[in-house]
Write a protein that binds this DNA or RNA. Structure first.
Lengths: 157, 157
DNA sequence: CGCTTAAGTTAGACACAGTCTATATTTAGA
DNA sequence: TCTAAATATAGACTGTGTCTAACTTAAGCG
């Protein structure tokens, strides 16, 4: 049995989720594809090989896996929800020009920051979404011009 | 002419957007309702009073207003997109128990933080999404117990 | 083992959010 | 006033996600 299988089964165990073939296939796909897959892509990927899963099952499993913290639903504005295996926490960057969603390595918010703004709330997790222009869109023609869409280039951080 | 009208017209002016009746109605509604309205709610609100607007127009205007920075599309995971008038920037808090979305007063990320993680990207804006339990859900029965869903209470920030 | 029961799976109908198209109207500016 | 470009419109259409009711499987127990 491969390392991955062991790892996944342990993850199920500790999350108290039954390791069904369909659920396993969903998690395995996400663990092996470090991209931000849509539910639809996952649905097709799973149904290409064996344990088949209906659309409802894929959604059910994504939800139960997300609840258990094994998978994360991406925060974004696109129409189709995207998911990734929640192995390493990270922030996200959304390119306003080409729409790409990129991972930003995790860094902590200094704990003093935001304390008072949050009041009595209990914060379990957080994530920062940056927007701007990715590496490829930074200078549209390789030229020295400014970024296209609305003209005002300038880092805010 | 009211203060608000003047303010809105100036906003259009500076954004180089034509102040059409429909566009005005959309922005006026958002400015007057500091909640996170869905496109559908805005559509209905606008069509209750005069300048009527078709569904497509509401969506078009929300997009053009968002592009101009007068309106902001909320980052979240629900199915229907939500918008607010972008008067004061703020972060968001999502209650994992009751689903409420709350505004968190704006605070800047210290500029040193994240610099290296972002590489060459040009960051225009950013927003932090916190998740956890809101004030009301913090102690389910008013009792001293822990938060329900998965048991492990504890602030991370 | 062989039951029992609760959790999970299924196909496909359904509901809803958002987009598109082709045409008509309005605005800004000359 | 006239023209070109921007914007508005109705409603059909697409894609994403949910629901239902019947069926299957996993886990615990005697």
């Amino acid at each position: 049995m491969s390392n991955l299988s062991v790892e996944l089964e342990q993850a199920f165990q500790s999350a108290a989720l039954r390791p069904t073939a369909q659920r396993y296939a969903v998690l395995e796909f996400l663990a092996g594809h470090p991209v931000h897959a849509t539910a639809e892509e996952i649905f097709h990927a799973v149904n290409r090989s064996d344990p088949r899963a209906s659309r409802a099952t894929v959604y059910n499993n994504l939800r139960s896996l997300a609840k258990a913290g094994l998978v994360r639903e991406l925060v974004s504005e696109g129409k189709a929800a995207r998911f990734d295996a929640n192995l390493h926490p990270h922030h996200h960057f959304l390119c306003e020009n080409c729409g790409a969603v990129e991972d930003i390595p995790w860094f902590d918010l200094p704990s003093a920051v935001g304390r008072s703004a949050l009041g009595e709330r209990v914060v379990r997790r957080y994530e920062i979404l940056f927007r701007g222009h990715c590496d490829r869109c930074r200078r549209p023609d390789g030229g020295p011009g400014l970024v296209k869409p609305d003209g005002n280039e300038g880092a805010v951080i």
